[in-house]
Amino acid sequence: MLWNVDLTLVDVAIVTRDAYAEAFRAVTGRPLVKLVPPMGRPDSEIVFETLAVNGVRAEDEHLPGFLAALATAFAARKGRLAKEGRAMAGAKDALRAVSRLDGVAQTVLTGTIKSNAVLKLKAFGLDKFVDFELGGYGEEPYPKATLLQVAQGRAKARLGTAFTADNTVVIGDSVRDVQAARIGGAAMIGVASGRSTAAELREAGADLVLPDLSDASEVVNAVAALTASASRKAG
């Protein structure tokens, strides 16, 4: 089970933007004028686009330097996360309910770099339900569909089970999350809590779409329905 982080589980956009601004200045010596919207993209992609729209010629060395500066800037602001951000409605109850399902391992598939993803979830007590070592993260220079396959490989190495569309579920709020699931090989639950509407998530190919995570039993039923065939095969 792979959860997107931003606007699926938490919303900490204000703190994230401030961290990006500090990282941009640290790397370029200039103030950040425009930060490109995330829209489900990984930090590695956002960095290069942000450099470009601010008139900075991107070089290969910019990415590791920027991501390191972003991690430092975000960590310095971790005390603001719970004050200025929020857990999305029902996020903790949904994570807890899914964690009680037999044979389910929960991790994240996120555009956020790993250290920042951990801090975002920890700020709201959501980290206890997630195995961060199995996830896919924004510092890895791959599209999200490839990150999904990387995460499936990590889970197979740890758990000894091959993960396919029959037993892998992604939950996310953006059309890009849906596309990653479709291409990478996973069932998809869209959550219309972000910038993509329920209609857009359905049109992109989500198997099921929920308005939000506020009904934990609805989330559990959706996961169970999408993995039922795998459970029957295992039995």
Rank of each mutant, 00 (worst) to 15 (best):
N116G: 10
A199R: 12
D212W: 00
T227Y: 03
N4S: 12
N167F: 02
I183C: 02
V53H: 12
D177S: 01
L213V: 04
A105L: 04
K78Y: 04
V223H: 01
T8H: 06
R41H: 09
H62F: 13
R41M: 13
R25G: 15
G138K: 02
T50I: 11
G29W: 02
N116M: 11
A19F: 11
A117S: 12
A165W: 08
A165Y: 05
K92M: 09
P31A: 07
T107C: 00
L210V: 03
G153V: 00
R195N: 08
M88G: 04
V191R: 00
G135F: 00
E59I: 14
L81V: 10
A224Y: 03
A52G: 10
A234T: 14
K92G: 12
G136K: 01
G138E: 04
V15F: 09
A94K: 01
A162H: 07
V118Q: 14
V178E: 02
R30K: 15
V33K: 13
G79Q: 09
T16V: 13
K78F: 05
G160I: 02
D93S: 14
L7V: 09
D43I: 06
T227N: 03
A222H: 00
S99P: 07
D18V: 12
A216E: 11
G235S: 15
R17K: 12
L201W: 07
